[in-house]
């Protein structure tokens, strides 16, 4: 066990834990989108989980920083917040914000983070840049919404963890990057209808089981 000081509070963590996990375990919230405990090598792609560590000149992503004894950490400095707000605004600038019609409404991580960082869901002052396709319905059981996806990659990793190979993949590049379910219906192993782990892990409303989704649209109050 090591002891560290986070926002002037002493917490303990197991050696080998990363700072993000240690903080979350102690009810210290750090915004994060792409971190998955089950992943050995964090992708650190969302650039949301920054903290400042005493003795280091730049904020660091907490999901990739392992705890050390006597570490002194601040999670809410102006530099950290600035980075987080910028990352969030960039995500929102490519996001179709239409929460009322989104089944993730009220349990969406993007909404939570926006509230926490006190950033409106508008992309101001950035331009909004959306993809032409709002929904990919090719898969027999899953629907995918490119303009809601934050490209955290969690769906891909849980699918791979579960089935050895993922039926989801990052496709294209740059602004055109999407998760793709290319030929997923033909993939031999998983039956997506019974698994749906990707849907459960998605922090926003970018993946949905076709059946549930209809249910939630037609009976929004029932659960």
């Amino acid at each position: 066990m090591v002891a560290l000081l986070v926002n002037d509070r002493e917490i303990e963590a197991k050696n080998g834990t990363n700072v993000l996990q240690a903080c979350l375990d102690n009810d210290i919230y750090i915004p994060h989108l792409c971190y998955l405990e089950s992943l050995d090598l964090p992708s650190a792609s969302c650039r949301m989980c920054f903290v400042e560590i005493a003795g280091e000149d730049k904020p660091a992503t907490s999901c990739t920083t392992l705890v050390r004894d006597h570490m002194v950490i601040k999670t809410d400095t102006p530099a950290v917040r600035r980075l987080q707000r910028t990352a969030l605004r960039l995500l929102l600038s490519v996001h179709r914000v239409d929460c009322k019609n989104c089944y993730a409404h009220k349990r969406c991580e993007l909404q939570n983070i926006a509230k926490f960082l006190k950033v409106g869901l508008k992309s101001k002052p950035l331009n909004r840049y959306l993809k032409d396709t709002d929904i990919d319905e090719d898969h027999p059981f899953l629907n995918y919404y490119p303009n809601r996806c934050v490209l955290c990659g969690k769906c891909l990793h849980v699918c791979r963890n579960q089935h050895g190979q993922s039926v989801l993949t990052f496709a294209n590049r740059g602004f055109n990057t999407v998760m793709s379910l290319y030929a997923a219906a033909e993939a031999p192993s998983p039956s997506c209808e019974d698994c749906a782990r990707c849907v459960d892990i998605c922090p926003v409303g970018a993946l949905a089981l076709k059946v549930n989704q209809e249910a939630s649209i037609h009976h929004p109050t029932e659960k």
Binding site: S166, V167, T169, A171, R173, S180, L181, Y182, A184
Partner: peptide
């Protein structure tokens, strides 16, 4: 190609589109 390398077609697609 996917069948030959015994990987999912989506992975081939993901790499190729990059």
């Amino acid at each position: 190609v996917a069948e030959y390398l015994e990987i999912n077609a989506c992975e081939v697609y993901g790499v190729a589109t990059f």
